[in-house]
């Protein structure tokens, strides 16, 4: 009875929004990188670095904004490592991405032990956090008001950023160049697009977004620093990019779905329905595989929605065929 209750779904959605924000940031960032042909599996590492440095900066400065900016910049620097290794040195993108994830995890845990007051651990400290800012009148709308218009600054920012990014990729000149570089860098190169510069730019941008996703965790969703605060969200974001078929708008729905899975699980337990938690946690990955099968199987869909053709491939100009 209670499971079809609107109030129940509104509360699930509300949690999904909170949990999904960091996923959308990370996914949009990864979409940028992958659209330019760079697969960056370092999302988890970039997120957690963003989370720890962002929280530390906010804690010491007492200003959340400084925390947010710091987290973004650190995420970008982590991505820069990946750029140098894969774009300049032409190393394998999968290996480098995994290395960034491992490096980020280790480094974040190390920093978490000393970035507190006078080199003490960050764990347990309570710092400033992003507060929900209810939008007058709109937040009073029944059910959806609380879901949509009683959120923190970073979530509101996505309301603008996501459509903007989607438009940028689809309709603008730099967006066209970006897509061309990811699809066929040879073609882009002979047409005068600087492939290396483009890939560096968007991959670093992806890192900034991933860092912001991490910051949202430590400053809003689960305020404070705990070890492995990201808890695999970076990987969910990577899966989310595929699930959303490299489209920022669709990534929002995916993020709500993936973010909502946990919420549903808790609520369902509360009302006494017995769906095993492990099964629900598996759902995002299962759905990703389903989507991957569908868009790979149908040729037309693959060409319209599939991965960028040159994803994962290094590019060198003077290559004799």
């Amino acid at each position: 009875m209670q499971i079809v209750d609107i109030a129940f779904w509104a509360s699930v959605l509300s949690i999904a929004m909170a949990a999904g924000t960091s996923l959308v940031y990370a996914a949009v960032g990864e979409i940028f990188a992958e659209k330019s042909g760079v697969l960056n599996l370092g999302v988890e590492g970039m997120m957690i670095m963003g989370a720890v440095t962002g929280f530390a900066a906010a804690y010491h400065s007492g200003n959340v904004l400084i925390g947010v900016v710091t987290g973004g910049i650190v995420g970008g620097f982590m991505a820069l490592i990946h750029c140098f290794v894969t774009i300049t040195l032409l190393a394998d993108q999968v290996v480098s991405g995994l290395a960034v994830t491992l490096l980020g995890g280790g480094l974040a845990s190390f920093l978490g032990q000393r970035l507190g007051v006078d080199g003490t651990p960050l764990v347990g400290l309570i710092g400033p956090r992003l507060l929900e800012i209810p939008i007058p009148y709109m937040s009073d709308i029944a059910y959806i008001g609380d879901v949509l218009f009683n959120r923190d600054m970073m979530t509101y920012l996505l309301y603008i950023v996501v459509p903007l990014v989607a438009f940028y990729i689809r309709r603008t000149r730099p967006g066209l160049f970006l897509r061309a570089v990811g699809e066929n860098p040879q073609a882009a190169d002979v047409m005068g697009v600087d492939v290396v510069k483009c890939r560096y730019f968007y991959t670093v941008m992806g890192g900034v977004f991933a860092g912001l996703g991490g910051v949202h965790l430590s400053l809003s969703y689960t305020p404070g620093w705990t070890e492995s605060i990201t808890g695999g969200r970076g990987w969910i974001a990577v899966a989310l990019v595929i699930f959303a078929t490299w489209d920022p708008i669709r990534s929002v729905f995916g993020a709500l779905l993936f973010g909502g899975v946990n919420a549903i699980q808790f609520r369902m337990q509360a009302v006494g329905t017995n769906v095993p938690a492990a099964l629900l946690n598996m759902l995002p990955y299962l759905l990703t595989i389903v989507v991957l099968v569908i868009i790979t199987y149908f040729e037309g869909l693959r060409k319209k929605l599939g991965a960028p053709d040159a994803l994962g491939l290094p590019y060198i100009r003077e290559e004799r065929v």
Partner: peptide, 24 residues
């Protein structure tokens, strides 16, 4: 051919041209 398969004829024609409007 140096063409981007998943893009249209138009998009391929203006690839690399920098003096179009930002929104093409």
């Amino acid at each position: 051919f140096r063409l981007v398969q998943s893009q249209t004829v138009l998009e391929n024609c203006i690839l690399g041209i920098r003096d179009t409007n930002l929104v093409v």
